[in-house]
C-alpha cells in the first residue's frame, strides 16, 4: 500500500477565507493534492464555506474531475472516442487492463494506477491514444506499456 498524501485542511481552507464562490476551486485543490475527496473533506469544506453538505456533495458527484474514492498515484486515461474506436482502441484497453492489472473505473490494489476511459483526448490523428499523468502515448506497444507499468 503506497503512502496516502495528507493535506493540511485547516491551512488549505484558511486560504480561501470562507468564500462560497470558491467551492469548485477548493474541491479541485483537495482533489489535486490528495487525489480524492473523503466524506470528512466534504464536511470540512461545507462548514468552512457555509455551504450545505447536500450542495457540496452534489457538486462533488456532478463533475468527473472529482473522485470520492482514493485514486492511484498515476492516472491513466484511454480514449474510446470514435476515431480511436475505429483504430481498435478496445484492443489497447484490453492490453492496458492486462499489463497494469486494473479495470476501467478502478484502481490497482497497490494504489499505483487508476484507469479511466474517455471520449476523446483531442488528438485523434494519433489514435489509439492513452494518457498517463498528463503525457500522451500514441499506439503504445506492449514493451512501452510494461515500462510505464513499472513506473514508481
Amino acid at each position: 500500500m503506497s503512502e496516502q498524501t495528507t493535506v493540511d485542511m485547516a491551512e488549505l481552507l484558511g486560504r480561501y477565507g470562507g468564500d462560497k464562490s470558491q467551492l469548485i476551486q477548493v474541491l479541485l485543490e483537495i482533489q489535486r493534492r490528495k487525489r480524492w475527496l473523503s466524506a470528512e473533506d466534504l464536511e470540512a469544506v461545507s462548514t468552512s464555506l457555509g455551504i450545505p453538505y447536500t450542495q457540496v456533495y452534489h457538486v462533488a458527484t456532478f463533475y468527473k474531475a472529482f473522485s470520492l474514492v482514493p485514486k492511484g498515484k498515476h492516472s491513466i486515461s484511454v480514449c474510446l472516442g470514435t476515431a480511436c474506436q475505429v483504430r481498435n482502441a478496445p484492443r489497447l484497453l484490453d492490453r492496458i487492463v492486462d499489463i497494469f492489472g486494473v479495470k476501467p473505473g478502478d484502481t490497482s490494489q497497490d494504489m499505483q494506477f487508476s484507469l479511466d476511459t474517455v471520449n476523446c483526448l483531442g488528438c485523434c490523428a494519433l489514435g489509439p491514444v492513452m494518457m498517463m499523468d498528463g503525457q500522451y502515448y500514441s499506439k503504445p506497444t506492449n514493451e512501452e506499456l510494461e515500462r510505464l507499468a513499472s513506473a514508481e
Binding site: 473523503s38 466524506a39 470520492l68 474514492v69 482514493p70 490497482s108
Partner: peptide, 10 residues
C-alpha cells in the same frame, strides 16, 4: 464512502 478502495486483485 470512506471504505478501503478497490476490490480488483492483480
Amino acid at each position: 464512502f470512506d471504505f478501503p478502495p478497490n476490490s480488483f486483485c492483480k
